[in-house]
Design a protein around this nucleic acid. Structure first.
Lengths: 101, 101
DNA sequence: TAGGTATTTAGGTAATTACCTAAATTTGTG
DNA sequence: CACAAATTTAGGTAATTACCTAAATACCTA
């Protein structure tokens, strides 16, 4: 766990919001963008970009940064890339801050 | 707790190191820089700057940033400003990441 | 009050980050 | 294969952050 990369990937308001939205996609994305696979797969780049009101390339890069830091998990399915949270890493991060930092 | 400011104040390697050094000053600073007051007061700016091998103004600014985010607590004592960790806030941060983020 | 030490503030440059648009790539489909 | 949709990559500019030195301030003590 590269703590500095993880923290850096969280040090931006939009990225932090994305993380929160993905905690409960059903509460934050329109119904027609969700499916039964949403819990397993997460949400695709363009839907997240729309929610963030930012350009797709910017958000694509944010998501890539966050998955490099292992905060998000990417799944390519056809032409779509879905991103979901890495709950395990977030719990590890909390424990690390609690005990190590 | 302004989570974004807290995370930003941790998103730099030197600032992260300072936080760790202050967790146990006796393990990280030379004996002659420590006293019986160290646990209550923390360590002064110039000693931290020396340890970080960076200029005093830079470190002074880092420490100010961190205490604005409430991660550190500053105590002015004569001509010295001592900084110690805010353990409560760090625990709150860990819980916030665990439960809210 | 004078002079010394610790710190902070001001002001600067270099590096990094935050975005964007345009172009390239990947994948599905007729 | 050609074309369309989703994404990524490239390449750019503006804003922010990371440092530094010099100057100003705060506080001590003779």
């Amino acid at each position: 766990m590269e703590i500095l990369d993880i923290i850096k990937s969280l040090s931006n308001e939009t990225r932090l919001n994305i993380l929160k939205w993905l905690k409960d996609p059903y509460a934050h994305f329109p119904e027609e963008e969700l499916s039964e696979d949403t819990p397993q797969l997460g949400v695709c780049v363009s839907d997240i970009a729309k929610k963030a009101e930012m350009s797709i390339p910017t958000v694509s890069d944010y998501l890539k940064t966050m998955s490099s830091a292992k905060i998000l998990i990417a799944t390519r399915r056809g032409q779509w890339t879905y991103y979901k949270r890495n709950e395990q890493l977030l719990q590890d991060l909390a424990m690390h801050i609690k005990d190590v930092l």
